[in-house]
């Protein structure tokens, strides 16, 4: 419940209004987490916000990494901290991406916009044990070319010969020679064995809904899809009730859920 103090070691601008901060815990203890988990970050004197961890879970010694969009009072205060400044960290919280569920299968990762940030630890984990998986496919959709997150890393992953990466944008000027169209369009172009595929999806809820539908059409079962919900998380520990979704608390029982469980809940508009 009590935040640990962390100091910003490094602050990098990814795209407009989005910053990746590398933090060092003041107590010197490395921060251990599972892919898909999140922390409650405190901007002292301002407030607290739930932010997914976006670093490499196998390298806690390299610092705690968060990618934050400067979009609100608290997230803005956190994103604007510079090297040496302090913030509070509570966590890690939540059920993360079940990486082992995909061992022996093809892996399809579908990210939309900033949804690539919570998926990046999963990507690191899969690539660290590449031989344990079949085909690995990453499909990424962004708003426009200027808002492609982690661009240099995407290019590095693409240079590997064992990962199939497709990127698309919703809108582009004519000087963009990449794909234009919604990310769901990429699913039919990717090569994977649907019956032996595990999919991981993160992005805006509308995008996730249409993506899981398109994956279903491609032959991937709901029981083989995992999606990360990020609604209204305020306390991180299932106490305040803000993130309640039917019978579950997103902060405590998620944010990652299997889609055969989640799909009926997402169909209820009042939830």
């Amino acid at each position: 419940m009590v935040p640990r103090v962390a100091r910003v070691r490094r602050r990098v601008r990814d795209i407009a209004d989005v910053w990746t901060l590398t933090l060092e815990m003041e107590d010197g203890e490395p921060f251990v987490f599972a892919p898909g988990q999140f922390n409650m970050l405190t901007a002292f004197g301002v407030g607290e916000v739930a932010i997914s961890i976006s670093g490499d879970p196998s390298k806690p010694e390299e610092g705690l990494v968060h990618t934050i969009r400067d979009v609100g009072t608290v997230s803005g205060a956190v994103a604007r901290l510079v090297a040496g400044e302090a913030m509070g960290v509570r966590g890690p919280f939540g059920a993360g991406w079940p990486v082992d569920a995909a061992k022996g299968s093809d892996v399809v990762i579908v990210a939309g916009g900033l949804g690539l940030a919570p998926l990046r630890p999963l990507i690191y984990a899969v690539l660290a044990e590449r031989k344990s998986f079949g085909k690995v496919v990453l499909l990424y959709g962004a708003r426009n070319p200027a808002e492609i997150l982690y661009r240099s890393e995407l290019e590095a992953w693409r240079r590997r010969l064992d990962v199939d990466i497709h990127v698309t944008v919703d809108h582009a000027e004519s000087d963009w020679f990449g794909n234009v169209g919604v990310v769901t369009n990429l699913i039919s172009r990717a090569h994977f064995e649907a019956a032996h595929t595990v999919a991981y999806v993160c992005g805006p809820e509308i995008m996730m809904r249409f993506t899981t539908s398109a994956l279903r059409d491609a032959g991937v079962g709901d029981e083989a899809m995992y999606i990360s919900m990020e609604r209204n998380m305020k306390c991180g520990i299932g106490m305040c009730g803000h993130c309640q979704m039917g019978p579950v608390f997103i902060c405590r029982d998620g944010p990652v859920f299997r889609n055969d469980f989640l799909r009926p809940l997402m169909a209820v508009k009042e939830l």
């Binding site: 939309g112 916009g113 900033l114 959709g141 962004a142 708003r143 808002e147 919703d170 809108h171 169209g181 919604v182 769901t184 369009n185 992005g203 805006p204 509308i206 995008m207 249409f210």
Partner: peptide, 11 residues
């Protein structure tokens, strides 16, 4: 359907 999603500008 894809065009409608693009119009929504979900990102």
């Amino acid at each position: 359907q894809a065009a409608r999603l693009q119009i929504l500008d979900v990102y």
